[in-house]
């Protein structure tokens, strides 16, 4: 993603609009693009979701398989999150092992889910010390128009929310059970362009921005994960605004995805 070049005329255009408090697609500075969620789209997965955030589309699939627990948590299920920026999704994505950006993306999504306690890992125990359920969250970018962080967070959350734990399929129980979900962690990402902070940046906005901040909240509006990225800096008051918006917008998004 490092080789993205944006023309000076485009940059000037976007900056001039922002100076009037406007964005190219007519959104408010704190307005999220249209969210569409389709769940259960992949039958071979225990849970799946295809999520669009404007023109950004990602797919998340959940695989749940029996495995051995970690020694320091003998009764806890295990979560693993991966993300891939495949060349199908954008001309700047290259084939090969996950890039730095893909690793950061997966780890930020993972942190939101893990630290919020979204999944009750105690309920993913088959036999303490011997066998637990391993939950693999794999996310693929399909069409990239900015803000993969929030699109991937939403896709992972929606896929987990509708996933099953295949107790029966593996002969470990009488019936398959729903994934033990306790809350919905929602991330809100903003970019800093000049002195403005804009929510849910699209590709062009992301390309001209200096800094990025992702804030993940839980159902109670408490903060569960944050990540600053980009070569620029943010001020304490920028951070304060981002925190306020993350709580407010998190609430709105929870309503949409139910």
């Amino acid at each position: 993603m490092s080789n993205i070049v944006i023309s000076q005329i485009k940059r000037d255009h976007l900056m001039n609009l922002l100076a009037e408090g406007r964005r190219e697609d007519g959104r408010q500075l704190d307005e999220v693009r249209k969210i569409t969620v389709e769940t259960g789209v992949i039958e071979s997965a225990e849970g799946s979701a295809k999520v669009s955030l404007g023109n950004t589309t990602v797919m998340a699939g959940i695989k749940v398989i029996p495995g051995t627990p970690y020694m320091d948590a003998p009764g806890d299920g295990v979560l693993t999150t991966g993300a891939e920026l495949i060349p199908l999704a954008h001309e700047s994505f290259e084939p090969g092992p996950p890039s730095e950006s893909a690793i950061e993306l997966a780890r930020v999504v993972d942190r939101g889910i893990r630290e919020s306690g979204m999944i009750d890992v105690k309920k993913l125990c088959i036999k303490e010390g011997e066998e637990i359920w391993m939950v693999f969250i794999d996310i693929y970018a399909l069409d990239y128009d900015g803000n993969l962080f929030d699109a991937c967070n939403l896709a992972a959350v929606c896929a987990l929310k509708t996933a099953i734990v295949p107790w029966k399929n593996y002969g470990k129980g009488e019936e398959n059970l729903p994934m033990p979900v306790t809350c919905l962690p929602i991330s809100v990402t903003e970019c800093k362009i000049g002195n403005d902070l804009i929510v849910d940046p699209n590709f062009d906005e992301e390309a001209i921005s200096a800094a990025r901040l992702t804030v993940t909240t839980d159902d109670d509006g408490n903060f569960r994960a944050m990540q600053k990225g980009g070569r620029g800096s943010i001020t304490r008051s920028d951070l304060s605004l981002c925190l306020d918006r993350a709580v407010e917008i998190g609430k709105q998004i929870r309503k949409i995805i139910g």
Partner: peptide, 26 residues
């Protein structure tokens, strides 16, 4: 941070904090 301006150049968080706790910690 950048001490001369107090700009934030690296920031991460994981766990569970209220706004008051986070502000106090920062």
């Amino acid at each position: 941070i950048v001490p001369s301006t107090d700009e934030i150049v690296l920031l991460q968080m994981d766990g569970n904090m209220t706004r008051e706790e986070l502000d106090h910690g920062l």
